[in-house]
Amino acid sequence: MFHEVDWAAVWKAAGETAYMVGISTFFTALFGIPLGILLVITDRGHIREMPWVQKLVAAVVNFFRAVPFIVLVLFLFPLAEWLVGTSLGPTAATIPLIAGAAPFYARIVETALREVDKGVVEAARSMGSTRFQVVTKVLLPEATPALVSGLTVTCVTLISFSAMAGVVGGGGLGDAAFRFGFQSFNDGMLVVCGFLLVVMVQLVQWIGDWVSRQLDKR
């Protein structure tokens, strides 16, 4: 079965997936963390009460989470042309991937930050911390293990999303499995691409768990 596998194409596709997932994980964290912080601190009774901002951000986040990913892909690939200069290939695929994953991660960040003991925040305020210091010196460091394990979950989701984005022109293992495997009646190709995706997921999960454990001093 495996003699028909085009290994050069497989490795190229694997590289594209890693690229897509890597870039979009980075930007997901970059957008997700500030959004999550905003969702928490603007809430009632927290350090920067702004109910309207809170409701607005929550609404935007919910909107992006409610739209099915495949619809995001179809709508946002054209936007990618404007943002990154191309509407094809792995770079273009990062746009809908980030749009889909950042709100998801923002909610995880929100939950992680809410888990931080209110007493510790109060203690920091009693010592004269600014709001900014409360966020950078208390909320984020105290929630780090949860932020890392949340990013792991998000990254795994991104791997499976990337396979879907691949099919509509993003490249990567999903695309390879579909075009060179499924459509070309090449079962070996299909199996190999699928297997590599599983390996990636396992690897990410394993690394994420390890890092989170190292950081957890509770």
Binding site: D117, G119, V120, E122, A123, R125, S126, M127, G128, S129, T130, V138, P141, E142, T144, L215, K217, R218
Partner: peptide, 21 residues
């Protein structure tokens, strides 16, 4: 108020230490 708080210490029933430090 923040400066004033630096001159007013506070300790708590549940200690409220940062466990990451």
């Amino acid at each position: 108020l923040r400066f004033a708080r630096q001159k007013i210490g506070m300790i708590f029933q549940h200690f409220n230490l940062l466990w990451s430090r």
